[in-house]
Write a protein that binds this DNA or RNA. Structure first.
Lengths: 187, 187
DNA sequence: ACCTGAACACCGTTCAAGT
DNA sequence: ACCTGAACACCGTTCAAGT
């Protein structure tokens, strides 16, 4: 079993960013956890922006793989949406963590351009997938309307996670998602 | 005209936090903008936590005054809600800034306890006000249900602002709020 | 009462030097 | 190929010293 240092750095850093944000990520603290010196991090990721960018890209890839799997494993759009909100729920369940790109979105103005691009790409992937799901279960919607409501769903779910994480109460997240569903925002 | 240094610090710091977050706020940068040395900030606010806490408390007070005014100036719950979302819209319109407590909520794990308390208080004030509005225009709702939906509205609006700010597009915010209204999440 | 310079332990980054 | 120590300009904080 070879433990790739680069992969270890990414795994540890992802957790740190999901709890403390991009600005809260410290190379020295990260290095200590990985078991190398902080200067060594720069060998694998020349700048903090390179690391942040790699984290966001990987996060988006993993998320897209999961979302594609959801649609492959079932024909029920209701289950797809349930699976979607489950991602955000799981982050909270895991040490009250946030969506990597959700927490970074709040730091948008402080983000290096290469990280911003990846945060934007994550949003695009989410909106695209939700938009496809909406087209399936509400075929009367036009492409623009689907896109529009997809963005609203994404924003609402990110907001639910943000608020629930502050409350430190998973029940708040569940109840908020339920309120969205009852209102008809979620299919 | 006496310019109170303490007030100047708070005004400049509020803007900085609304764009870069609590972690992004630098005492040295703040001091430069105010025209004093960074060590002098500590005379008015012993620690960064004291400043952050004062900012959030003031922000909540100002917000509550505005919200109370809304209900005094009109009898139309639709206008109240319009006025509510307008606060978040105005922040974006002002150099793409965020709600002070929304951006700080994302940094929740990095916040000193005295700041967390004030961020929580802001959420409480918002949920309380929204809950009262809901009780007025949907009297069939129970107190718990009003509270619940109020929290959902608050979370959704914060999320809309977070996403629209990343997009740098006020139209995204407007369209998302409209989608909430059409779905029936907003009265 | 209000401000400052200097020091402290932190931060990301660079780089010459090690293996 | 991968890691390190030392230096750099940053950070919040403290404190003795100034007015």
């Amino acid at each position: 079993m070879t433990t790739d240092t680069r992969e270890t750095i990414m795994a540890v850093a992802r957790k740190m960013v999901q709890t403390r944000g991009y600005n809260g990520l410290s190379f020295r603290e990260l290095a200590k956890e990985v078991g190398i010196k902080s200067a060594s991090i720069h060998y694998h990721f020349p700048t903090k922006g390179d690391l942040g960018s790699a984290l966001a890209r990987r996060y988006t890839e993993d998320g897209l793989a999961y979302l594609s799997g959801l649609r492959a494993d079932s024909d029920d759009p209701q289950r797809w949406i349930k699976g979607y909100t489950e991602i955000f729920r799981m982050a909270l369940l895991n040490d009250n963590r946030m969506c990597l790109c959700g927490i970074m979105a709040a730091e948008y103005d402080d983000l290096p351009p290469e990280v911003r691009v990846e945060v934007d790409a994550f949003t695009d992937v989410n909106v695209q997938w939700l938009s496809e799901v909406l087209s399936t279960c509400r075929p009367e919607l036009g492409a623009d309307q689907s896109q529009q409501q997809a963005l609203a769903i994404y924003a609402a779910v990110e907001g639910a996670q943000l608020v629930a994480r502050g409350r430190g109460d998973l029940g708040v997240f569940d109840a908020t998602i339920e309120a969205y569903r009852v209102a008809g925002l979620l299919p």
